[in-house]
Nucleic acid binder design. Structure first.
Length: 436
RNA sequence: GGCCCUAUCGUCUAACGGUUAGGACAUCGCCUUUUCAAGGCGGUAAUCAGAGUUCGAUUCUCUGUAGGGUCACCA
């Protein structure tokens, strides 16, 4: 029973901030492990001492945590050098690897001893969960290098030894590793390790149809957090790049994804990642939040002097991520609530209605609104009084437009009833009076 | 170039060999209490090309074409 347990791993190298494409492989590995009651391992592949940085490792850990991808085991490849050395020595002893004296690649002319694999030059085939049967000849690979020396293993050796020692049963990784697989299988055979199941994920492309890369604007996952995306929305949206459950449901929670995820439904072809659709996913996930949580978040994103519960409703239906709150502030859409707008007389005019008629309509509005008590000054009551007047006019706009403009000073704004409610009776009447 | 992989609306995708080729995002139009947003309804839009197998091909086979991956003392 224990033998059949699924163990997957996410094995990034901490040489930069990881973008969504990398996290998608983490998500799939995680989902697959959880779905099968297995174990999810995080292994930091930091054997490249020059390029690996602690900062990046921390960013990876932080990002996984934020996404809700909890791992059961953690390894740092650089801490496994002893076992890498053990297998290296074993291979040399058994003849599947040898020490080769060669001139250093840096052009210094120094002769070094490196460790090469004795390539048997055979056809290697493996079954890939996504791509199917793949066969490759390994003779082009030559006697590839396993390690710089006994204490400095290279990628292929380290991966194979660690996957074996950590009991990895399913290697889920990017398609760029397909051509690495045969030589890793060769090493497995040499050290007597079983071959795990492989699933090579198709690449994630940017809008330019090229591989997603930081150089072309791909963001680190922590940047999405800064932009005010919900982790569950990112999880959902990224999982849907190159995978779908085959039903028409698109919005999934963390737990629903675990239940639904299947490797067999992963796409074979690369997928273009759409920022627009990610925003849509986020908006849908915001809708699932309780009213309280939405209020709390919006309030947090508002500057202190603007933290007023009353404007939350008009903000919440106009944003798809929290940072859009800032955008609304910057475009001045919310200013009317905090300061009396400066009006341009002509803008009160609806179509060709004479200005006298507009003033007259505004006055009727003032008259009826005066009759509402302060505490009943809400959008329903306001609407109930204003609409009957508007209905008597050739066009409702002759009343509604000037009222809305007088209150907001904007060409585009929420409807006049809600604005009046937010402003309160006094401010509403005062603004209407000024417009007459 | 060698090896490997892939190919359905602009994008993500669905379709036991038989469907008016379905859905979502985006886009366009209409409606909904002037405008904006939200919401509702509807529209435009796709099987890379050519052969073959078959009564019938988006689906199977081959070829072509186009993309992509990989060929390190990086991972």
């Amino acid at each position: 029973m224990l033998e059949s347990k699924v163990v997957t791993r996410f094995a990034p190298s901490p040489t930069g901030f990881l973008h969504l494409g990398a996290y998608r492989t983490a998500i799939f590995s995680y989902l697959y492990a959880r779905k099968n009651n297995g174990i999810f391992v995080l292994r930091i592949e930091d054997t490249d001492k020059e390029r690996s940085k602690k900062e990046y490792e921390e960013n990876i850990i932080e990002s996984l945590k934020w996404l809700g991808l909890d791992y059961d085991q953690f390894y740092r490849q650089s801490e496994n050098v002893e076992r890498h050395k053990f297998y290296l020595e074993k291979m040399i002893k058994e003849g599947s690897a040898y020490i080769s004296k060669e001139e250093a690649k840096d052009g210094s002319g120094i002769i070094k001893e490196i460790i090469r694999f004795k390539n048997p030059n055979i056809d290697v085939s493996f079954k890939d969960e996504i791509k199917g049967e793949v066969t490759m000849n390994t003779k082009d690979l030559g006697d590839f290098v396993l390690a710089k020396n006994l204490n400095e293993p290279l990628f292929h050796l380290a991966v194979v030894v660690d996957d074996f020692e950590e009991g990895i049963t399913h290697v889920i990784r990017g398609e760029d590793h397909v051509s690495n697989t045969p030589r890793q299988i060769l090493i497995q055979k040499a050290i007597g390790a079983p071959t795990p199941m492989y699933a090579h994920l198709p690449l994630v492309l940017g809008a330019d149809k090229l591989k997603l890369s930081k150089r072309r604007g791909a963001l680190a996952i922590t940047e999405y957090r800064k932009l005010g995306f919900l982790p569950e929305a990112i999880l959902n949206g990224v999982a849907f790049v190159g995978w779908n459950p085959g039903t028409e449901q698109e919005i999934f929670t963390h737990d629903e994804l675990i239940k639904t995820f299947e490797l067999s439904k992963v796409q074979k072809s690369p997928a273009v990642f759409s920022e627009e659709k990610l925003e849509w996913f986020n908006k849908e996930h915001i809708k699932k939040l309780s009213q309280n949580e939405i209020e709390k978040n919006i309030l947090e994103w508002l500057p202190e002097n603007m933290r007023d519960m009353k404007i939350v409703p008009i903000i919440s239906e106009r944003i798809s991520k929290w940072s859009d709150v800032k955008k609304m502030i910057n475009t001045g859409e919310l200013n009317f609530f905090f300061e009396t707008p400066v009006l341009v007389k002509e803008k009160l005019i609806f179509k060709n209605t004479p200005i006298e008629k507009i003033s007259q309509n505004l006055n009727s509005a003032i008259n009826v609104l005066q009759n509402i008590n302060d505490k009943d000054f809400n959008k329903e009551n306001i609407k109930n009084l204003l609409m009957p007047i508007a209905e008597t006019l050739p066009s409702r706009g002759e009343l509604l437009h000037p009222v809305r403009y007088a209150l907001s000073g904007l060409d585009k704004s929420p409807d006049p009833f809600i604005i009046a409610e937010i402003l309160g009776k006094n401010e509403t009447l005062s603004r209407l009076q000024k417009a007459v």
